[in-house]
Amino acid sequence: MSEEQTEKMTIVAALNSALDVALGLDERVIMMGEDIADPIGGVMKATKGLSTKYGEDRVRATPIVEQTIVGSAVGAAMGGYRPVAEIMFMDFLCQAMDQIINHAAKSRFMSGGHTTVPLVVRAMVGSSNFGAQHSQALEAWFMHTPGLKVVMPSNPYDTKGLLLSSIFDDDPVIFIENMAMSYSVPGMVPTGDYRIPLGEAAVLQEGEDVTVITYGAEVHTVMAAAESLVDEMSVEVIDLRTLVPLDLTTCLESVTKTRRAIVVHGSTQFCGPGAEIATLITDELFGALDVPVARLGGTYTPIAFAKELESLPTEDKVVAALRELVERPSVARQR
């Protein structure tokens, strides 16, 4: 199959296609998680048909045991396999944190480089109907843990290309999906094997007045906001795609040009990824910035159930933040 053959896929279809390609390419790719085997094929159907095609030995439905789903993936990785563990909602990674942080992330280092743990842990954020324990975006916790890579795609094409790169990467990867986007943002995706390197951001839209650095579902919120502001300002939009490795180079190139930047994400703003990214940009471009790098993340609250209590960046919040950022007098000119 070549990259030329494409199909319109949802993110779920792209996940299924990536897993199908990986299982077909390498017998060492295995999967474990709750309900992932047929007939249900995963709660979001991301693994539909795979246990039938590749066998339940390789695509294993587990009991409800998050610690041991990840723990067995760590062990299988140490045993020479490339496991993909599915942990449904990202909040449930709390159950598996010991295996992720103390074992997956640290084993290479603690063994003096003798141990390799090539595994992927897939989990979802962004559910809207479950309340505070099934919704939170926790990518900052994993960015803060040396030894892990963190991937958070925004569309079907990136989802497949990044998942394939993650599976065949020799480091443990936390691969974060978004439930709300599962079926809502279809796009053209090659049916065969292709890889998007970890650590390469995508410039989705070029602009002159301000740079928005974002990733995951917020990419769509930001693009909608930029579209509604098209008569007021020229917005450059960067989709980071991966948070570790972080493509700071692309961010710096853009902000050097626009001199104004904001980081937008769905995780809590305080101590969130935006704090680190804004600081890294400021460290490099302090004198060249018109205004301090801004952030727009989640409020410092759990995720509320009522729709009126919105914690995450909305299109309106992004529009307001961009207007404020662009209208703010330049610090450089005041000097």
Binding site: I30, D57, R58, R60, Q67, T68, V70, G71, S72, A73, V74, G75, A76, A77, M78, G79, G80, Y81, P83, Q99, H103
Partner: peptide, 13 residues
């Protein structure tokens, strides 16, 4: 839990 994974690897091998 890691031993379960090593056991799985041995069984698959």
């Amino acid at each position: 839990p890691m031993a379960v994974g090593l056991g799985l690897a041995a069984q698959l091998d």
